[in-house]
Design a protein around this nucleic acid. Structure first.
Lengths: 222, 222
DNA sequence: TATAATATTTAGGCAAACCTAATTATTTAT
DNA sequence: ATAAATAATTAGGTTTGCCTAAATATTATA
């Protein structure tokens, strides 16, 4: 068994590995986990002793196969609980993160499988993030970012990459949510900001925003 | 906020107070929590500093009003989760205890209230134990122990006082469960063991067993 | 390429919770 | 009422996980 803290480190390393290739730096982990670099170094040694990560002093860490498996289980639990909170307990999708951070550490294989089955084996959580199955397999994820669409493209929001409350509340305010259909009306060349159409309204989004919105691309205007 | 360990102590003190009048001894807590007496003493000082308990060296502890309120919240969460696990996730009632011990520490007032509402505001958990409401109020509990019934009495099982797996499995084997109707056929005078009728079968129960079974008394034979 | 800037690690501390062993208080029994 | 038995507390140690400050390694710059 692993401590909650160990699990948090494994999850953080996993998530950084999705974004960055190569070894994950001490400082990126210390930033993500809001802890000091010295604490990270210490924990990486522990995780390395338990063979959950490959750690080279001064050159970062990567998960071992065993560490990756564990990380996927934590992600699975986190996302299943988020789904439960939103779909069954009337949470808003921007309220669930903190609670799911606690629930993901509950240890009971039976609980995870029964919860999954109770929820109808969902493939995506309320943020559109894919839920690993019990073997750690991820469903194919919506790959295009909104920023990759071209003028006139149509699509449907399938996920968001930034889970901060600020971003999620911004989206809410703009009426952008999961399964919202959008259309690209204009792209500013100098800063790549985008005007999109959402339910009859026109909304301007920065490149930062469009980079963090995943889209299922439906069709392109002739 | 309180640590998990502090919460476990508060719950344990609360439960011992239900059984025993007066101050709760260090040794009874150390036994219940499976920890050494020295650790208990240490924690009692901490809880006393936080004004959750009244602690007199060598003379035991009792919860303060604030400690009791906190303990009731933990009990509430524990029993709501047990209900959820049994009624929604297909757990058997003798499998839920360990998982509920973890879930009871999740901190989110909204989660507790939404879960309660989702479950239909149940009054009793799967062991028949009463679930405190959000203000800490307990529904009137089935008060009679099976051991208090007299020859010829009829009743319905409403709860059990010993949550050990061994006891719960024993009950299962005898087909004694929640809402099972029983009838007292015979009481042995020398050891107070009892023969009861359950669904056409006769079962002999020790005083230890009958002390741990709660009954709604229905009627007495003429 | 040497030096400055930055990142990382080491060293030494702290608090929570546990432990064992030794001491002290209370209770029981003679 | 005192001695023996039992219970509780204190003293001192351990592990986890965090911290700050100092030292060292790596990277960037002049």
């Amino acid at each position: 068994m692993f401590t909650q803290s160990e699990e948090n480190y494994l999850k953080a390393i996993f998530q950084l590995q999705e974004e960055i290739e190569g070894g994950i730096s001490t400082s990126s982990l210390s930033e993500k986990l809001e802890t000091k670099a010295a604490s990270v170094t210490e924990m990486l040694k522990r995780l390395s002793d338990k063979e959950l990560v490959d750690y080279q002093k001064y050159y970062g860490v990567q998960l071992t196969e065993s560490g990756r498996k564990q990380a996927l289980l934590i992600v699975r639990k986190h996302r299943l609980w988020e789904y439960f909170l939103v779909e069954r307990l009337n949470f808003n999708w921007d309220e669930v993160h903190e609670v799911a951070e606690q629930l993901e550490h509950i240890k009971s294989p039976k609980l995870v499988e029964e919860l999954d089955s109770f929820l109808g084996r969902p493939e995506y959580d309320p943020h559109g993030d894919p839920i690993p199955d019990k073997h750690g397999k991820l469903p194919k994820s919506p790959t295009k970012k909104l920023s990759q669409l071209k003028l006139g493209d149509h699509g449907i929001c399938k996920g968001f990459n930034d889970n901060s409350s600020a971003f999620l509340q911004f989206l809410d305010k703009q009426n952008i949510g999961l399964h919202t259909p959008i259309e690209v009306l204009h792209i500013e060349t100098f800063d790549e900001s985008m005007t999109i159409k959402i339910a009859q309204r026109e909304v301007l989004l920065s490149k930062t925003a469009t980079d963090n919105i995943y889209i299922d691309n439906i069709a392109t205007e002739a």
